[in-house]
Design a protein around this nucleic acid. Sequence first.
DNA 1: TTGTCGGCCGATCGCCGACAA
DNA 2: TTGTCGGCGATCGGCCGACAA
Lengths: 227, 227
Amino acid sequence: IDRRVWMACAVPLSRIPAVGDQVFYFPYGHAEQCRDPLPDPLPDRHVFPCAVTAVHLAVDAVTDEPYATISLVPGTHYDDQPHPPAPAPAPAPAPDFSYYAKQLTQSDSNNGGGFSVPRYCADNILPGLNFSDDPPLQNLRMKDLQGDDWEFRHIYRGTPRRHLLTTGWSKFVNAKMLVAGDTVVFMRRPDADNENEKELLVGVRRAARYGAYPLRNVRARVPVDEV
Amino acid sequence: IDRRVWMACAVPLSRIPAVGDQVFYFPYGHAEQCRDPLPDPLPDRHVFPCAVTAVHLAVDAVTDEPYATISLVPGTHYDDQPHPPAPAPAPAPAPDFSYYAKQLTQSDSNNGGGFSVPRYCADNILPGLNFSDDPPLQNLRMKDLQGDDWEFRHIYRGTPRRHLLTTGWSKFVNAKMLVAGDTVVFMRRPDADNENEKELLVGVRRAARYGAYPLRNVRARVPVDEV
DNA sequence: TTGTCGGCCGATCGCCGACAA
DNA sequence: TTGTCGGCGATCGGCCGACAA
């Protein structure tokens, strides 16, 4: 997966360590995320210095949420020594990748139909419309992070004029089970196949929900109908 | 869970062993069901004699499918010795539990709406209608194996007359993701709370699907958005 | 007895401009 | 500039009897 795509769809504060980084492992926080009962009594040590041996970025096949698997080996940090040389600052992000994120309003996620495209997004992310048409419209094809394609009708209409996604939008909302408060991310980057063509992508960030992530709560189970 | 309910909803050939039974464990078959890659090379022994130490009947919270967890300890069978005395034949099933299973037709599972109730089922499982009404109808409330309630309108109409489940039926079909070829099981038994009242239950058997059980294929995963 | 079909009516979906924040 | 609303037309869900297997 494109690291820029992953970063654009991760919650804004996400930071991921690099291989070789020295980090601390908090079993307590990990166990909380697993939703398993915490050990009682809690272990003596709550924190373990570790080194990162591998980082793998991926996307949940059900929820589209980006996640990272980070492999650690426990070990002593070179505490009083200077930290290893800070890596050179990351090169400025390539100018050929840009994205726009919008939190869904009630109207965007209603079954009423469409999605109101902010002006900035229409101007900077989506392909330009032919404004001599009346009304100006086009069909957009976007890939989600699984690689599945989605089609949206993009139209510029109403009084006053505004950009809207109509046909195809509510199918997407239902399929991704989006609700008001969730965020969609529209991205453009050069098409891998076609030089000086642009490729559109669409990602999703889910608003924090009480009770955490119901979809993750499914357990695999071995059917035993017969012995 | 009521053992009679479990048996009614399990595939007809299911047999479950009793605690203390001597059985054979086939790791190969077990691994196949897990859909994990089989070990290569296969282990030397393909069959292990075991004794059953526990049997637990349960129902999948997503698919409603009955399954059993059967605990085994490996050990030698008393091979040439006579088998332990066969348990006394199970007492005849209590006459106050009865069920009827029907495989869904296209029309039953279509979005067209209703379910055609076979005459035998209406007469022997469902509460009787008041045939002086025109048309005769009643609302039925049934528990599924999770304990959730479902309501169906039961009506006797059409020319020639026949029993149908209408309102509420397609909601059930969609919620349980039933398709033509799947089977529903209607059961009646005495109400636990209310003497000489009857309680209705509804269960589901899924037709064998190519590619096995897609819903079981979901893996739980630990979100790691931040370190 | 019961599976499938066409008719038909009502509910919902989803596209639209109006309007106001 | 953009969020929400009421309108309304098209589509679909779902109840019905007819009919035949």
